[in-house]
């Protein structure tokens, strides 16, 4: 469901296809830029949101990663950080926010509730946001320590750094989105 960077498809050698050496190193540069400028959209609904505040706080300081500018407008955000329980009433909202985000976009499910429903296996709680949006990184914990949230962020940085500029146009990605009925 999410993109596994460990598995690399065999690519045509450089210079044969359109993307030559220049293009790939250019991609690397953009990957680096993206890596260091991931603006989060803190979709904080409950307890994990407080831990996110701690992550923003002086002791952990998410800004070291270039991610301290929280963009509450989905248009400007790069990562959707879903923190806290997502009830079934809220599910469509998450999806809508995801749809409003501009590519490239990543999703982190922070904490047990967002990832799987956690302790709340109840009629009203969505059992994991991967039922409505594709999730790239899961962070376990209830709530995770700020270190773990930063770990999750670094995981996304890995993804952002190694991602091809064309991945978002690839048929696999389109199929993934289609499976979530997004656009």
């Amino acid at each position: 469901m999410s993109e596994n960077t460990d598995i690399k498809l065999v690519e045509a050698p450089d210079g044969i296809s359109g993307a030559g050496f220049f293009a790939t190193s250019f991609e690397k540069v953009i990957g680096l830029a993206r890596k260091h400028s991931l603006w989060p959209l803190p979709f904080a609904t409950s307890c994990c949101g407080i831990e996110y505040m701690a992550t923003m706080g002086s002791n952990y300081d998410i800004s070291r990663f270039g991610s301290e500018r929280p963009s509450f407008s989905p248009r400007q955000a790069d990562i959707l950080m879903v923190m806290g329980t997502i009830a079934k009433k809220m599910g469509p909202v998450v999806k809508q926010v995801y749809e409003q985000m501009a590519e490239p976009r990543w999703v982190i499910a922070v904490g047990a509730c967002a990832s799987s429903g956690g302790i709340f296996d109840t009629y009203s709680v969505l059992q994991g946001i991967d039922r409505v949006v594709p999730v790239d990184v899961y962070v376990p914990g209830c709530p995770p320590r700020p270190e773990q949230i930063l770990d999750g962020l670094m995981r996304v940085q890995e993804l952002a750094e190694n991602e091809s500029l064309r991945r978002r146009n690839s048929p696999e990605y389109q199929a993934l989105l289609a499976s979530y009925n997004i656009k």
Partner: peptide, 12 residues
């Protein structure tokens, strides 16, 4: 030790 963040749900 804390449980690390991962990419896939199955890994948990």
């Amino acid at each position: 030790k804390v449980a690390p963040a991962r990419f896939e749900r199955d890994e948990f």
